[in-house]
């Protein structure tokens, strides 16, 4: 199955995200990305400032997995969790953290909590999502 973010997911991701990484033996480290450089069907590039990157640098250097949740109102309205493996490139003073997504979950409280979305065909996922939400970030 090819992972394909919906347009609504992309719109919410662009508002900023919380990123959780972990050491190889499971110590979590969390940062935020206020600037999202780009979002394609299966890839997100976060533009992290030095302080935003340095808090995860040590863990990320040994383990590329990243779990992503949408920040601010997105925590309520955009009930998704995205997971994938990342790489980082430095561009000037910015650290571009590119995450190739491999998993998308619904985190809406209730019967859909934990529902995996990337295993649905793209059209089916879009229709399923449309049945729950249609709002976009303001």
């Amino acid at each position: 199955m090819v992972l394909k973010l919906t347009e609504r997911m992309k719109a919410w991701i662009k508002t900023g995200c919380h990123l959780n990484v972990a050491t190889k033996n499971g110590i979590p480290f969390l940062t935020v990305s206020r600037n999202v450089k780009s979002v394609s069907d299966d890839e997100i590039v976060f533009a992290l400032s030095q302080d935003e990157y340095f808090v995860i640098k040590s863990a990320f250097s040994e383990n590329p997995w990243v779990a992503i949740g949408v920040s601010k109102a997105g925590g309520i309205r955009a009930c998704y969790q995205f997971k994938g493996k990342g790489t980082v490139d430095k561009e000037g003073g910015i650290y571009n953290l590119k995450v190739n997504l491999s998993e998308v979950y619904c985190t809406k409280p209730g019967c859909y909590a934990g529902q995996r979305l990337d295993t649905k065909p793209a059209q089916e996922c879009e229709e399923w999502e449309h049945g729950l939400w249609t709002d976009l970030p303001k």
Partner: peptide, 16 residues
């Protein structure tokens, strides 16, 4: 709030 955890072998998770 976000609750962030990890499996013992380092796969992270995050949920509001």
């Amino acid at each position: 709030v976000y609750l962030a955890t990890s499996s013992v072998d380092g796969k992270p998770n995050i949920a509001a």
